[in-house]
Amino acid sequence: MRLKRLFPAALVAALTVLLVFLTLPILAIFFDVGPAQLIDALGAPGAVDALRLSLLTTSIALTVIVIVGTPAAYLLATRRFRGRALAITLVELPLVLPPAVAGIGLLAAIGPGGILGPAIASTGIELVFETAGVVIALTFVASPFYVRQALAAFEAVDSALLDASRTLGAGEARTFVRIAIPNATSGLASGFALAWGRALGEFGATLVFAGSFRGITQTTPLAIVALVGSDFPGALALSAVLVLVSLALLISVKLISGSLLGPARIPTW
């Protein structure tokens, strides 16, 4: 009888500890500095540069990820071929790779001394310590988040819809654009938001591969680390902005998947 009451209490206690532990640091960012101080700190030139660079590089990276990742995910979702499972595993590999290792890998592959280094150098493109290098690092680290979601979203599209489209005279490309994508939008959008969130927070691979140069490769997370020692309020201010953006992304994912994929509102056929 006593155990019967104890167990629910233990569950509640566990959840409470977890919630406090997870939200305290986030709330602390906002409580430690006042709003006025936050806005002041954002006025610092380095902060604005970092935010602008983050916006620029994540936008380019996400564009590349969507353009290449969407058809790749569609292929993986709609065809059965030898090596498919291997291909999916390879796509997911960056998820479990430590970011610093990803950065080292990128250096070894396309850095100046890397396998493809001479070939890239001969085209005149500079990657290492350049903004383009940041984009490469972000794309590498964030793409699995999008591709995985896109794969699941395309797999969830009723294959009869794709078949129907074909018998109604649409070729594969038209079927992809007119039927597959519109019926997978909620999954694609949540993958997009997750990948964007991951790209915004990217630190390790960017630092190793592109370095941390203000205005060129110093994205917001790198700027926060650079500021921690010298300008703690400035670091807090940038962190607060990242928290707000991340929160907005998380909420949009919830809204998208909750309202559009929720079984209660729209039948999934």
């Binding site: 009723d158 009869a160 078949d163 129907a164 005279g169 039927i179 039948p267 056929w269």
Partner: peptide
């Protein structure tokens, strides 16, 4: 021939109407 090149009117079991 690809399905789109054959002239078949196909009524699917659950109709496969495009939900959107």
């Amino acid at each position: 021939c690809a399905p789109e090149q054959r002239s078949c009117g196909y009524l699917f079991q659950d109709y496969a109407l495009f939900p959107r």
